[in-house]
Amino acid sequence: MNKILSRTITSIVIAFLYIPILVLIVFSFNASKSRANFTGFSLRWYEKLFHNDAIMTALLNTIIIAIISSLLATVIGTAAAIGINKMKPITKATIMNVTYIPIINPEIITGVSLMLLFRAFTVYSNFEFGFVSLILAHITFNIPYIIYSIIPKLRQMNPNLVEAAEDLGCNARQAFFKITIPEIMPGVLSGFLMAITYSIDDFIVSYFNSGTTVETLPITIYSMTRKKVSPEINALSTIIFIVILAILIIRNILSNYKLRKEKQEYLTSRS
């Protein structure tokens, strides 16, 4: 009984999650501009999309901002995590709590608070809203994800490892680069990837801090949705969906393959 009920609810939720996306995909191939009438198959919206300079520029901006901000956030965040890990519990807890603020604070508040700061900058210097403000803002909300994905790795690390390295003749610096960094690398990488994703996906913080000259992709999408009818959005969504689907499927296949291999190794080691 319970099983049937929870299966039904799960199916409904999954249908609920996917129907709108499927509709977008289907209508991205629509010959006419209509959002409700499928009049025939066509790729014209894809063509239009690739000739839409505003979208292409925004896409480029988004990627540049995401890469620069994630890289800088990774450097600052990794160093920070290693330092924080060595602190006294009270200092550590305080810093971690402040670090937590951009994660849990409503994005609109992160957005307007940074806007107030940058506005103050414009008053007291020749600072202008644009690329720099966007990158600063993105670094700010990216660092916490980096720190929070590295700290657990540092905590799991066997403290004897560094001591063993030193015992075998490494000085502190060598031990750091040969032991600590490789040990926390998975955390650094997953934090970096998270930062890239959040950065590409961010609309709200960017919306308040982009000024009038620079647009990121989500901002362009937003202005397109305001115009009510723009089937290029459907084409864009379809492309994004398929790219993400491909990435996730590949990742899943890889991890399944790894799982199967481990299982096999386990079985052979047992017999």
């Binding site: 939720v13 999954i14 999650l17 996917y18 129907i19 709108p20 996306i21 509709v23 977008l24 209508f27 959002r35 409700a36 994703t197 996906d201 609309f203 992709l217 989500p218 999408i221 937003y222 949705t225 959005i233 864009l236 969504s237 994004i240 969906f241 993400i244 689907l245 996730l248 899943n252």
Partner: peptide, 21 residues
Amino acid sequence: MIVILPMWINFLLRTYAWMTL
């Protein structure tokens, strides 16, 4: 993955999808 996948699409697009529906 099936549950998370839609989250990877920008929420503006997801909300826009509901407008058309």
